[in-house]
């Protein structure tokens, strides 16, 4: 697991009030972790702030799983380097 994924997992766990061990790549953010649309927007806001990136709505609309979220963050952090 990359450092970005480690940091993202800790942030997601904190935001969702879950144990980090529950944040695994295959988990669906909505169905498995119980996030609603506002949780997801707040999570995106937190990740954007912590990683200093700005996601597009088209990209966030495709996110379903934790793996999707890791991929999104990695794509955007590469863009800003």
């Amino acid at each position: 697991m990359s450092r970005i994924q480690d940091k993202a997992r800790a942030l997601i766990a904190s935001k969702m009030k879950l144990d980090e061990s529950e944040i695994t790549p295959e988990k669906n953010i909505f169905n498995d972790l119980g996030a609603d649309s506002l949780d997801f927007v707040e999570l995106s806001m937190l990740l954007e702030r912590e990683f200093n990136v700005k996601f597009t709505e088209d990209d966030t609309a495709k996110v379903k799983t934790i793996a999707d979220l890791y991929e999104l963050i990695e794509k955007y952090t590469k863009k800003t380097k």
Partner: peptide, 10 residues
């Protein structure tokens, strides 16, 4: 307005 994504506004 602090944040906006799709139809959600904070």
């Amino acid at each position: 307005l602090t944040y906006h994504m799709r139809n959600i506004y904070i």
